[in-house]
Design a protein around this nucleic acid. Structure first.
Length: 654
RNA sequence: GCCGCAGUAGCUCAGUGGUAGAGCGCACCCUUGGUAAGGGUGAGGCCGGGAGUUCAAUUCUCCCCUGCGGCACCA
């Protein structure tokens, strides 16, 4: 007897092993028809897998989150099957479900084209119509390896070889086509439906390792129905309009050009955002007990050798020879024999030098040393991405030198600072990651154990939920990463908090403890925004360019209706500027409709319209971005209200 | 850096083996108009760079550069 507990709590008994399909059949015809898989004690299983012991069972249809995952997983298989039908000799590798869809990596000498995608899609549709049933076989390990090797599927054979001994080797069939897969799957290809689309082609290294061959990855999206698919495509289209690179150009904030690739030309309007942010964060740091310093841009390579950067990051440093370039046009500019300097890729070693000046007592700690340091990193060409990944960037960087017993307090203090800053910025969707020791690192394992534990403990004490990112720490210590999401769902590290026992050791920083003995301080590397560049990029996408008043480059445009009101418009500008606002004047020979439209497109938060009426009554007609109507205020009221609203959030608090 | 795709006016894009076109923007003129496009005229292009094929290349081929989407990397 097998007792099956259903979601409503009722129990059904079966004479022996029963499948999900069998249970569904026994419940109702319509359920049997809709069922796509079954959850057995919380684990999603094939509808045709026998359930041999008592269990809680939930049967679900394709219109559930679990069902959607299966649709995407099956769509990946379908893609592989279609590709192998159309392009014999192509090897399959892996094809997982990802956010909003799936991908499959193929090994094929000839590249796929976008035309191929259309053909593949068509073939996939035909396979759905063919309604091929799913069937599972469990194979013997060596037979499976021999089978796939014989088929010429060396990647699959490698995958099976690397499976742990004793792991079941499941082979799923969709018709005759079959693949190694953990499963589970939909009962047949018809259940996948046709709400899918192949969206892009890309290269991807086999097993994510750049020493391995590059495979061809085909990305697709799949949904339960056409409506969801359409909604997704519309969502992506809308998101693309929020792209900071597009808005940066449209709003005249910044630009890039090939002569300085990866470095930003900040236009006046973009730099106003930067200045507002910098002033804001500087106030927070001042209030939180930081000191601010400024350190050299170029330092001798010996210095970077000592810090460990030269060995690990030299290839992405901008190295500068310490010599006078030749002025002889026929001779090489540089001799290649001089000593080498490098532009700083980070500020920390320089901060240690300031710490080391004089003798520090345990009473001096913690020292919170901040710098808006401009750093250069020679990032790989393919890594550059608008403001998000640049070669010259300025961090709101600081290093906290403290005693080990101060780590918990400092961590809590930083997390407080971080959360109130992000709240002020309107950024609430943050994911936290604790990144642990990487393969290439400095410092012994005992030190790493201590550092990772200290950080995890501090986080737990602060009550923060975090995800573990194994092996993604900095080479000198574990780190907490604060990630934000861009318009199309990519996540970027913004803030960071790193615990470091190693650099103080390497650079010989010490303080004198209460017994008069020399001790190593702990160094906490931290940034709240991360870099101004990336953070501004994320802010632009977050607000879709419609910045809150305090960050808007132009806060108010005063637009005159007729030239009779020009003088009054000038006066309004003067008054609003006196209230601390950034104001532009628009007395062009254009209709008011045109002006309103243009400034609205430019995402100016407030338009103060003045005509003859306003001029005589000393009023303004104020129109806010996003609103259809306007309100009539006296000039003084408008100046006061807008001036108050334009104050940075920290200065608005009582 | 690797794989794929792209590069035509300031922007968005069309186009052709015989050296180019639209809309918006810009300039000038008319228009003084009450909350998301008033009208007219005009200027503006080494068709990313280099080489090759050709009588002729923006168009075809190759190389390079830059950009885009991924991958790898991200102190």
């Amino acid at each position: 007897m097998v007792a099956i507990t259903l979601p409503d709590g009722s129990v059904r008994e079966f004479d022996g092993a029963v499948t999900g399909a069998g249970i569904a059949e026994s419940l109702s015809k319509s359920l049997a028809k809709k069922a796509v898989a079954v959850k057995v004690d919380g684990v999603v299983c094939d509808l045709f897998s026998p359930i041999k012991t008592d269990a809680s069972v939930e049967i679900f249809s394709r219109d559930t989150p679990e069902g959607l995952d299966l649709i995407r997983h099956d769509a990946a298989h379908l893609l592989a099957q279609a590709v192998q039908d159309l392009y014999p000799g192509t090897q399959v590798t892996i094809g997982p479900v990802i956010t909003d869809g799936f991908y499959y990596d193929f090994a094929r000498d000839e590249p796929f084209s976008s035309d191929d995608l259309k053909k593949i899609e068509k073939r996939m549709m035909a396979l759905v119509d063919a309604d091929l049933p799913t069937r599972k076989e469990v194979w013997n390990r060596s037979d499976a390896i021999a089978h796939f090797t014989k088929m010429g599927e060396s990647y699959k054979a490698e995958l099976i070889t690397d499976l742990p001994e004793g792991e079941e080797i499941n082979i799923y069939y969709h018709g005759e086509w079959h693949d190694l897969c953990l499963g589970p799957h939909l009962p047949s290809t018809r259940h996948i439906g046709k709400a899918f689309k192949l969206i892009k082609l890309a290269g991807a290294y086999w097993r994510g390792d750049n020493r391995n061959p590059m495979l061809q990855r085909i990305y697709g999206t799949a949904w339960a129905n056409e409506k969801d698919l359409k909604a997704y495509l519309t969502r992506i289209e809308e998101a693309e309009k929020r792209d900071h690179r597009k808005l940066g150009r449209e709003m005249d904030l910044f630009h890039f050009q090939p002569e300085a690739q990866g470095s930003v030309f900040w236009h006046a309007k973009g730099y106003l955002i930067w200045r507002a942010l910098e002033a804001y964060i500087r106030r927070q740091l001042d209030a939180d007990g930081y000191i601010e310093v400024k350190t050299p841009q170029i330092l001798d390579s010996k210095f970077w050798e000592q810090s460990g950067h030269w060995a690990k990051f030299r290839e992405s440093m901008f190295v500068v020879p310490d010599e006078i370039p030749s002025t002889d046009d026929d001779a090489p500019v540089l001799s290649g024999k001089s000593d080498l300097l490098a532009l700083k890729p980070m500020n920390c070693p320089a901060h240690v030098q300031i710490f080391k000046q004089g003798i520090k007592s345990y009473r001096d700690l913690p020292i919170r040393m901040a710098e808006f340091g401009c750093c250069h990193r020679n990032e790989a060409h393919g890594a550059l991405h608008g403001l998000m990944r640049v070669r010259q960037m300025t961090q709101d960087d600081a290093h906290i030198f403290c005693r080990e017993d101060q780590i918990t307090d400092e961590t809590r203090r930083f997390l407080d600072l971080f959360s109130h800053v992000y709240a002020d910025m309107g950024m609430t969707d943050i994911s936290y990651k604790l990144a642990t020791r990487p393969d290439t690192r400095v410092g012994d394992d005992a030190t790493w154990d201590r550092a990772e534990k200290a950080l995890a403990d501090a986080l737990t004490a602060a009550g923060l939920e975090f995800e573990l990112a194994e092996g993604e720490g900095a080479f000198y210590g574990p780190k907490l990463e604060f990630h934000l999401t861009d318009a199309i769902g990519r996540t970027w590290q913004a803030g960071t908090y790193q615990l470091d026992y190693v650099l103080p050791e390497r650079l010989d920083a010490s303080y004198v403890d209460d017994k008069g003995a020399r001790q190593r301080p702990v160094m906490l590397h931290r940034a709240v925004f991360g870099t101004f560049e990336r953070f501004i990029g994320l802010l632009i996408e977050h607000y879709a360019g419609r910045m809150p008043l305090w960050l808007a480059p132009v806060q108010v445009v005063v637009a005159a209706i007729t030239s009779e009101a020009d003088d009054y418009a000038r006066e309004v500008v003067t008054t609003l500027k006196a209230a601390g606002l950034r104001v532009d004047l628009d007395i062009r020979n254009e209709k008011i409709n045109y002006k309103v439209r243009e400034h609205s497109h430019a995402k100016v938060p407030a338009i103060a319209v003045v005509g003859a009426r306003e001029a005589t009554e000393r009023k303004v007609s104020l129109r806010r971005l996003g609103s259809q109507g306007q309100s009539i205020l006296t000039l003084d009221e408008a100046a006061q209200a807008l001036g108050a609203e334009a104050a940075p959030p920290d200065l608005r608090r009582d």
